[in-house]
Nucleic acid binder design. Structure first.
Lengths: 180, 180
DNA sequence: GGGCATTAGTTGTTTTTCACAATCATTTGG
DNA sequence: CCAAATGATTGTGAAAAACAACTAATGCCC
């Protein structure tokens, strides 16, 4: 039997920070439940944050035909940044299989945001290119992401954001590496 | 037209930290693409991290019948920690609608991990309770989560983890609040 | 160069997930 | 005592994810 009570308190960090602590050591209460008993699990926050962030992003992009897709935004930005990129490269970034990636590309092609060509040096492969319409969309999307970022980050002091982002980045790399 | 080149570099944070910087200012390269051009977007890291963390968790729990469900783990732990909790409370924590929550509960009941009773003070509502089997499972799950946490966090110094977690927590609360 | 494994991408299928509408029962408030 | 609100279930349809099977082109190795 595991001892679960009292709920674990978050201990203070050792880093100098401009983030005030006052609210952070109080338990989160949702629907009358102190969800801190979920072990303060990192994975829980990540999964919940993902859910909230995705919803918010969907909402902000509701007026664009790119909305509602998980990999579409990444694909669009990649094609915009890397003319001639291949579907298989995108699949690796998205961590999806090729069929899934292919269908994302289908929709972007159909929407007129990108176009396919056969890769000259390998006739099996495709080279993807952004269209004029797609490029405009990519810029708009970037703006929306930046907006979300600013609104979202408004509780973290400017000089701490980079640190936070760096941790996220390392977390991502570390986990990805461990999954081979 | 947005200036996209050269890719944005992450600036150094101002916080004292034991996290070494050396690797962090190098661009991430996947399939030959520097994904830093995705604007270093916070949302991208969160979504990708979620994907990796969820996969890893699924993998670690593959031998348990609770695997593969997004809300099942949270539900199980909540019921274990809050005897008599109601489905609607769980729905609020999960940010899912009641039908979805009800179906998660169905599966846990069917697996014999929790049981339903009618709430004595409100005959419309249910009170959920953990079973012996479910409690054992909950402890096992907690162990797995802790394991993942330790492995995952091995690149962050002990005293910095709390700070990272606190930021995630604030991020979550902040976004959730803004979605009303 | 012929044959075979590998890689790139597509198509199809099946299962799961999710959101929405409709329904029933109970409670609450006037 | 009636109407509105709340807690939960059922049903349905649409979107997403995982898997297998298939075509085509490339690379390797004899």
């Amino acid at each position: 039997m595991t001892d679960r009570y009292p709920p674990r308190r978050f201990q203070r960090g050792s880093m100098a920070t401009t983030v005030p602590d006052d609210q952070d050591d109080q338990p989160i209460t949702l629907a009358g439940l102190h969800i801190d008993v979920l072990d303060g699990a990192f994975s829980w926050y990540i999964r919940s944050l993902d859910s909230v962030v995705s919803r918010d992003l969907d909402h902000r992009m509701a007026h664009l035909d790119i909305a509602k897709g998980k990999g579409k935004i990444t694909t669009l930005l990649l094609v915009d940044d890397y003319p001639g990129v291949r579907p298989s490269q995108i699949a690796e970034v998205l961590m999806r299989d090729r069929p899934a990636t292919g269908r994302i590309i289908d929709r972007l092609v159909q929407a007129g945001d990108i176009r396919r060509e056969t890769a000259p040096e390998d006739q099996r492969a495709q080279a993807l290119f952004i269209t004029e319409k797609g490029h405009a969309l990519a810029d708009e999307v970037r703006g929306i992401i930046r907006e979300q970022e600013n609104e979202f980050f408004d509780f973290i002091a400017e000089e701490d954001r980079a640190q936070f982002m760096r941790m996220l980045k390392r977390a991502y790399l570390n986990m990805r590496k461990k999954l081979e």
